[in-house]
Computed example of a mutant assay.
Amino acid sequence: MEMVNEKLKQLQDNLRELGSVAIAFSGGVDSTFLLKVAHDVLGERAVAVTASSCSFPERELEEARRFCQENRIRHVVCESEELDIEGFRQNPPNRCYLCKHELFEKIWAIAKEAGLAAVAEGSNMDDNGDYRPGLIAVKELNVRSPLREAGLSKAEIRRLSKELGLSTWDKQSFACLSSRFVYGETIDEVKLGMVDKAEQLLLDMGFHQVRVRIHGRIARIEVLPEELPDLLEPKVRSKLTAKLKEFGFSYVTLDLEGYRMGSMNETLKRD
Rank of each mutant, 00 (worst) to 15 (best):
L192Q: 00
L116G: 07
D204N: 14
L164G: 04
K239N: 13
G184I: 05
D230F: 07
A120I: 08
R159M: 12
I221Q: 02
K191F: 01
S178A: 15
L141H: 05
K171A: 08
L164K: 14
P234H: 04
T168E: 11
K106I: 12
E140G: 08
S153C: 07
A155V: 11
L228P: 01
D127I: 11
D204C: 06
V195D: 00
E189Q: 10
D188K: 02
I110E: 14
P229A: 10
L231E: 09
E185M: 13
G129M: 10
V210M: 06
V143R: 00
V212L: 06
W169M: 08
E156T: 09
E149M: 11
D230L: 15
A155R: 15
P146K: 04
P229H: 05
G129C: 08
D196Q: 13
W108L: 10
V212I: 11
V190E: 14
K100Q: 11
R211Q: 10
A111I: 08
L231H: 03
P234L: 12
E163V: 09
E121V: 07
V143D: 05
R148A: 12
F174K: 05
C176I: 00
H101P: 02
K171W: 04
H208W: 04
A111Q: 08
A219C: 12
A175K: 01
L203S: 08
M205I: 05
E163W: 04
I187M: 00
G165A: 12
L177T: 01
R217H: 13
A137L: 06
C96N: 06
L201P: 00
Y183K: 02
R159L: 12
I221E: 02
K162L: 11
L228I: 15
D188Q: 03
L98W: 01
A198E: 04
I221W: 02
F104Q: 04
G134A: 07
R237P: 02
G151I: 10
E185I: 03
D126V: 12
I187L: 00
E121R: 03
I136L: 14
R237Q: 14
Q209I: 09
E113L: 10
I221H: 02
K162H: 13
N124F: 10
V212W: 01
P92R: 03
A114N: 14
V223L: 09
V182R: 03
N128Y: 13
E140R: 11
Y183F: 14
L98R: 01
V236M: 15
S167G: 15
Y131L: 09
R132N: 12
A118S: 15
K106A: 10
I214E: 01
K239M: 13
P229K: 06
L192D: 00
L98S: 03
E233K: 13
R180F: 00
R217E: 14
F174E: 13
L116Q: 04
P92K: 03
E113M: 09
P225F: 05
L202T: 07
P225K: 06
E222P: 05
R148D: 08
I214V: 15
G216W: 05
A118P: 01
F181P: 00
L135W: 02
L232V: 14
V223Y: 01
S238E: 15
S145H: 06
L103K: 01
A114Y: 11
K112R: 15
K235D: 15
V212K: 00
A150L: 06
K106M: 11
R180G: 02
P93R: 04
A120G: 12
C176Y: 00
E233C: 08
L166D: 07
D170K: 13
R211C: 09
G193P: 03
D188I: 04
